[in-house]
């Protein structure tokens, strides 16, 4: 993982909101507290296909410069499996800061 940007809370909170839209329920109602170290697959019980959908939601929100699929295409499988919400937010922040 090459991006070293740590996402500000504002970006992190927006990513959490989008994941809430993905899950289809308010995460708080489900009793899930999403933190930076919350794992997308293991802790949220989501599948890789949901990561693709999240990529679409991120592109809708921020425009095409946030391209999660392109970013993840450079990952090894284990890194995708272990992806945390914080690292997704860090990527978004880095992509937004690039220009």
């Amino acid at each position: 993982m090459s991006d070293t940007t740590t996402a500000p809370d504002s970006v992190f909170d927006e990513v959490v909101d989008l994941i809430g839209a993905l899950v289809g329920d308010d995460l708080a109602l489900l009793g899930v507290e999403v933190r930076r170290d919350t794992a997308f697959h293991e802790d949220l019980g989501l599948e890789s296909v949901d990561l693709v959908t999240l990529g679409g939601l991120l592109a809708d929100r921020y425009g095409p410069r946030v391209n999660l699929a392109e970013h993840l295409a450079e990952f090894e499988l284990d890194d995708v499996i272990g992806l945390t919400v914080g690292r997704i937010a860090d990527y978004v922040a880095a992509a937004l800061g690039e220009r």
Binding site: E47, S48, V49, L51, V52, A69, E70, A73, F75, V80
Partner: peptide, 26 residues
């Protein structure tokens, strides 16, 4: 347990970057 993700998160972005239209589906 496979889905479009196994292509979408590996081959789809670089293939599209090479100028080829890509369709993935579940």
């Amino acid at each position: 347990t496979d889905s479009l993700a196994s292509f979408y998160l590996t081959l789809a972005p670089p293939v599209a970057a090479a100028g080829i239209d890509v369709i993935s589906y579940d």
